[in-house]
Design a binder for these strands. Structure first.
Length: 358
DNA sequence: CATACGTGGTT
DNA sequence: TAACCAAGTAT
């Protein structure tokens, strides 16, 4: 790589060029203030950063609007019912985020007087806030000069300094480089500008180097191999799993359970199933003896680390309530408001479609 | 350091 | 279509 030290003397130029680009091209997003203006409400910065973890801007829009309208501040969110908040998150994925979102709001209210602490060190102690999010909130909402490093920034910086070490081994080196170019003035705008650049011109494939504001500073561009960086370790193949979900219907209602807090789709409302997980197929055993019949079709759903083929088995016969797994009857007419994660939302759709054929 | 943890869009 | 990837965190 080209030494970071060697570039340090130019770091001001990099920040200046990037901020000038941001002043002209910043995306207008609901959780942002315009370049160079006072920061948004830190609650909204926090909410957006949690939602944006491993999640695209396009997917976040409607959830951000829904959450901030319904729960406009920490006090409102802290006093909400868990089930309502979990259901509102359904479909966004990575459900540990919403469990931690609730926890964090309650800690902020009970231990911080309803306002976020203002330093990255204190922020990182809160549930659901790791190194990236702590730095992002501190820089964007509170103006702390701190290195904000997400996947976009890793890519931009790996190219800027031609860092050829593969990820994740290159992370410490990248962090040092980001710290060296982060300005004391407008660190929040700088962080968002780096992420905007990584999300647009400095994209994974086909980076638009010719019109990049950092072209003159970019070692990989000069060497002609920007698109090959950052290097990454090869990924493992996804295992295939199978499982069965159980559709238990009576008088226009279906029986829904709440999943355990830990593990796949933790804490979410779901159909009962046969115990499939990341490590093993389901056991195919219904939760109780009844007149079960298979539902035609299947749901194929791809998770981060395995692919699941889920089949459905249904019963509509009267059942002994005491046999049912812990749960609740949910009206079919308002199934949309149950907050089922996408896997079970697909399964429910399949069951209802099969049912309408009769 | 590796693994578990969702979902939808892009190529 | 299968692979890759996104404003990561917790363990």
């Amino acid at each position: 790589m080209v030494g970071v030290q060697q570039h340090t003397q130019y770091s001001g130029d990099i920040a200046s060029a990037l901020l000038a680009y941001y002043d002209r091209h910043a995306r207008d997003l609901p959780w942002r203030s315009p370049p160079g203006t006072p920061p948004p409400d830190s609650y909204r910065v926090w909410m957006s950063e949690i939602m944006l973890q491993q999640t695209t801007v396009a997917a976040v829009f409607s959830y951000f609007e829904k959450f901030t309208e319904r729960w406009p501040d920490f006090a409102a969110l802290a006093s909400a019912d868990d089930a309502d908040v979990m259901a509102a998150w359904a479909g966004l994925g990575y459900y540990s985020r919403v469990r931690n979102l609730i926890k964090c709001a309650r800690v902020v209210v009970t231990e911080y007087g309803g306002e976020l602490p203002e330093t990255s060190v204190e922020l990182a102690k809160l549930p659901g806030i790791g190194a990236y999010t702590a730095a992002a909130i501190a820089a964007i909402a509170f103006g702390e000069r701190v290195a904000v490093v997400d996947a976009n920034v890793e890519r931009v910086v790996a190219r800027l300094f031609a860092i050829e070490t593969p990820l994740p081994a290159a992370k410490p080196e990248i962090r040092v480089a980001v710290n060296a170019i982060t300005p004391a003035d407008r660190p929040g705008d700088f962080a968002q500008a780096m992420m905007d650049l990584g999300a647009s011109l400095c994209s994974v494939r086909n980076p638009q180097c010719l019109i990049c504001p950092l072209k003159m500073h970019c070692a990989a561009q000069k060497a002609g191999f920007a698109e090959t960086l950052p290097r990454k370790a090869a990924k493992k193949a996804k295992p295939e799993r199978t499982g069965i979900a159980f559709w238990i219907e009576r008088d226009g209602h279906v029986w829904l359970i709440r999943r355990p807090d830990h593990g796949m789709l933790g804490g979410m409302r779901s159909l009962p199933d046969d115990g499939w997980n990341a490590r093993a197929d389901g056991d195919s055993l219904p939760p109780f003896g009844a007149d079960w019949s298979p539902v035609a079709g299947e749901v194929v759903h791809v998770f981060t680390h395995f692919r699941l083929t889920l089949r459905l088995t249904a019963t509509a016969a009267p059942v002994d309530e005491s046999c049912l797994p812990s749960g609740e009857w949910w009206p079919l007419k308002s199934l949309d408001s149950a907050g089922l994660p996408t896997l079970f939302s697909k399964a429910a759709k399949l069951a209802i479609r099969a049912r309408e054929k009769f």
